[in-house]
Design a binder for these strands. Structure first.
Lengths: 218, 218
DNA sequence: ACCTGAACACCGTTCAAGT
DNA sequence: ACCTGAACACCGTTCAAGT
């Protein structure tokens, strides 16, 4: 999309065209900076600084900051890829594996979780279809499968939100070098919290509930 | 706490003491305004305006906005009261009733949910003790009961967070006169979302999981 | 002790003016 | 078409100065 050769596409001096700014480049930088420093840290001026441009320039590509944030979420959502799980495995394990891939993906981009609260990605699309289909194999049919899938998604999404809130919480301090581990100081002295173990527990609870409540098993 | 008679304790003219401002009064007004207009709407200047004072005055009572917000959350958390549920009812129903009271309370103060993400209330205290005890009657013992209760709380709290995020979401529009109902425009045309029904579903899932996974029944 | 008035650094956003 | 420079209204916060 640059105008000429393959030269460095930034900071080509004041005025006129030539910075070679694109929506994709802006989104990529924004995502990178937010994943590193947190969502609140990023301002339009700081983003512009890191790109080598003035803040006003961003407003030619995005009509406002919200639109930019939405594009960031959309980008991460579109990057979601998942492997189909072994079809011969027990259905419960397949659902579990399916959901775990969702968690793994959002974990790589905590930014998207934070922003996703205000700007939910539009396309749950194909990923959701697989989920609904898996629930169908558990015995749920039609709308019932869709609703149960939605409930499961809310549980998982809710877990992400709670986990995400710990990062900015006053009482929780992340342990360095140990992602998913927090020190909690509340009431009777500091204690430890392992969100990975807790996620296992929550997921088990939900899956136990799904299998227990299923109309029939196959 | 006012200095003299029972006269109106605000806007007593410029300079000096006499506004009769207290931490409690500030917190109360802040909570009321946030519940009405949303958390983001409230600024220190707007809050001061509604009290009849200049923004700087607030900083004598609170060292910054975060401290004020924390006090708001703490206040709502302390207001949480719950009725003990009938002891002769099935344990599952007791747990359900217990959790529902939590939901009802936070629903009255959406502000606390929003703020609670950054400033988790310190005392889950007595309410949590009852929960753990109920899980004990389901067959979980000791630490296992605590961990399972924590998982359940994360599910419920997570639900609140997701629900809360819908209010500020771009794709969801609350239906007037029907709290808990949203119109969702995503993909294939607008659809409806009833969060109360969805909460029932999520809670059922979790409780089914809890009873299914319990070591023994009594 | 408690509050005002005026400032400071910062924010998102706009827009004429440049090339 | 694409970007700069300078402004606007707003924010949280500080602090000397008043009473």
């Amino acid at each position: 999309v640059a105008d000429g050769g393959g030269a460095d596409s930034r900071a080509r001096g004041p005025g006129g065209r030539g910075a070679g700014l694109t929506r994709e480049a802006i989104v990529a930088t924004a995502l990178e900076l937010m994943d590193r420093h947190g969502v609140e840290w990023l301002t339009m001026r700081r983003l512009a600084d890191h790109i080598g441009v003035r803040a006003g320039a961003l407003y030619w590509h995005f009509s406002n900051k919200d639109e930019l944030c939405q594009a960031v979420v959309e980008r991460v959502a579109n990057d979601l890829e998942w492997r189909a799980v072994a079809v011969d495995a027990p259905v419960r394990d397949q659902i579990e594996a399916h959901v775990r891939q969702l968690r793994a993906h959002w974990r790589r981009h905590p930014t998207a979780v934070t922003l996703g609260r205000r700007f939910p990605p539009s396309g749950a699309g194909a990923f959701g279809d697989v989920g609904v289909e898996l629930l169908g194999r558990l015995g749920y049919r039609g709308d019932e499968a869709k609703e149960q899938w939605r409930a499961l998604v809310w549980i998982v999404l809710g877990f992400f939100f709670v986990e995400d809130s710990l990062a900015s919480s006053v009482h929780h301090h992340p342990l360095e070098g140990a992602p998913g581990r927090f020190e909690v100081d509340v009431g009777s002295g500091p204690s430890l919290l392992d969100t990975d173990a807790l996620f296992d527990r929550v997921l088990d609870l939900a899956l136990d509930g799904l299998t227990a409540g299923a109309p029939r098993r196959r």
